[in-house]
Nucleic acid binder design. Structure first.
Length: 491
RNA sequence: CGGGAUGUAGCGUAGCCCGGUUAUCGCGCCUGGUUUGGGACCAGGAGGUCGCAAGUUCGAAUCUUGCCAUCCCGACCA
């Protein structure tokens, strides 16, 4: 068959690509660096998006939409921000095409040059803060808690499906607060929301932490992050939440009147997660047979495959299947009934394993006679006969068990792949032979961080939240250090 | 942007060195039939600017040059 997958051991990158393409999540497109998200992949994103959206609203946020285009001058108003993004911006310079006078199709009309170029947003802080300036006058206008679901463009040199594409989908929250404390609280709250989502819905354990200065978002005072561990031992930043201080308020002159009738700059946050999460999901859980999707966000939680034996068996099997489907749907489950007669059961089994459907129910005449169905779970590949009586409730329990099992398995893996290193030799050895997170002392300087990166390709993923304080010596310089930080090679 | 690899039907490929009828094979696809408990079988059929453009030649998938795209590895980044 053409759906042979590359194994993880043979070529991890190729395995990942195979899963994305053959699992039907996405395709390469005709546009360099851009992908097409296919219906199955988009259904997955929709489930993630819907849950996150719910969580944002529960924490008091509302959705809005800001323009795709940002006037060039806006971007340069915050110095660190423009510095960070300038190298990867798509720029609109003209607004009209014309027929080529030389007859070579269509060309840009040189007379249609824009007065001011427009940047295709790499992120929306600038256009949003330019707008907030008009929306905020008084402390009564605060806090302003807005999120937007959007696409952004970052002109990456090297792209990978879901992990890094020139255009990607994400959400970006942008909030404005009267006090520093409140803004920091918001930053931490949203980090918690992300961590909860990724752990409870995606079944991927994360480390919450703070980025070092060099890994910080361009324009932020502090960047908080959640870091996940992939099966190849590399780390992946799964979400970020930024405390922006008054940087953008000052850049865009956003002031408000306090109760005491004083003008003050507002305090800001921004936070985002993207379709990159899908990459994290794939690499955290899947195996050499295909995707393994967590029940809470899988497009289909259950697939039912009928096993016909002669034309006359179709009626009773379909009837029983429909009964089961109704009972599953009544409990809110997402179910697919694949009674497509063009492919046989064996093909379907392999196909839904590839697509990572958490639970498969197979049912034929033999099962009907015994009032049972065959239930197979994707995560462990176990197959069991289960009675039709009370099936739906048992499937719900099974899905919960799969969800928990996937999380525990990923957590056990991460725990196993997290090691302390106490000197340089240990550090190097761990990086090359074991991978994963390496907890080690660092003297706190950007120079040392940079040097370690140059020497090993490992970066400081984060300083974990509520990190244990302990005296030690920096693994590179031997200088005094008050705490360990997490190093890893990363995506 | 540097290094490497690849580009022939939807996918995977043979042919290319050594130019010569109608471009090979498998999967998939369409029609009909038989089937269905781990990637079914039979019969018939459709599908191609050989990545693009120049050049060499009587003749180019094949040789030359340029370009484009994709993947992998690096530098950069979510």
């Amino acid at each position: 068959m053409s759906k042979e997958l590359t194994s993880r051991a043979a070529d991890y990158s190729q395995w990942y690509n195979d899963l994305v393409i053959k699992g039907g999540l996405a395709d390469y497109s005709a546009v360099r660096g851009c992908m097409v998200i296919k219906p199955y992949g988009f259904a997955l994103w929709e489930n993630m998006r819907d849950q996150l959206d719910k969580m944002f609203k529960e924490t008091g946020h509302v959705n809005a939409y800001f323009p795709l285009f940002i006037p060039k001058s806006f971007l340069s108003k915050e110095a660190a921000h423009v510095e960070g993004f300038a190298k990867e911006c798509a720029v609109v310079t003209h607004y009209r095409l014309m027929n080529d006078p030389n007859g070579n199709g269509i060309v840009v009309d040189p007379d249609a040059k824009l007065e001011e170029e427009l940047i295709v947003r790499p992120t929306s802080e600038t256009i949003i803060w330019n707008t907030y300036k008009d929306w905020i006058q008084s402390y009564r206008d605060l806090p302003l808690l807005i999120n937007q679901w959007a696409n952004v463009v970052r002109w990456e040199m090297r792209t990978r499906l879901f992990l890094r594409t020139a255009e990607f989908l994400w959400q970006e929250g942008h909030t404005a607060h009267a006090t520093k404390e409140e803004a920091i609280e918001e930053t931490e709250q949203m980090l918690d929301v992300y961590a909860t989502f990724v752990e409870e819905y995606m079944a991927v354990p994360v480390i919450k932490g703070i980025k070092t200065a060099s890994e910080r978002f361009a324009g932020a005072v502090e960047t908080y992050c959640i870091e996940a561990m992939m099966q190849d031992g590399k780390a992946l930043q799964a979400g970020t939440s930024h405390f922006l201080g008054q940087n953008f308020a000052k850049a865009f002159d956003v002031q408000f009147l306090t109760k005491e009738n004083k003008q003050e700059y507002v305090w800001a946050t921004s936070w985002g997660v993207s379709t990159r999460l899908i990459g994290a999901l794939i690499m955290a859980h899947s195996d050499d047979q295909g995707l393994i999707l967590p029940p809470k966000i899988a497009p289909f939680q259950v697939v039912i495959v009928p096993i016909y034996k002669g034309e006359e068996s179709k009626v009773p099997i379909d009837a029983k299947a429909n009964e089961i489907i109704s009972s599953l749907k009544a409990l809110g489950l997402r179910v697919k009934y694949d009674n497509n007669d063009n492919s046989r059961p064996g093909w379907k089994f392999a196909e839904y394993e590839l697509k990572g459907v958490p639970v498969r129910i197979a049912m034929g005449l033999r099962d009907l006679e015994n009032q049972v169905v065959e239930v197979a779970r994707r995560d462990t590949k176990e197959k069991n006969s289960m009675p039709v009586e009370g099936l739906a409730a048992n499937i719900v329990l099974l899905l919960d068990d799969i969800q928990v099992n996937m999380y525990n398995k990923a957590l056990a893996f991460r725990t196993e792949k997290t090691t302390e290193a106490n000197n340089w030799d240990e550090f190097i050895k761990l990086l090359d032979e074991k991978g994963g997170f390496i907890s080690a002392h660092w003297d706190g300087t950007a120079e040392t961080e940079e040097k370690i990166k140059d020497l090993t390709k490992a970066t400081i993923r984060c300083i974990p939240m509520n990190n244990k304080q302990e005296e030690g010596k920096c693994i590179l310089t031997g200088n005094q250090s008050s705490q360990r930080v997490l190093f890893a090679r990363a995506y």
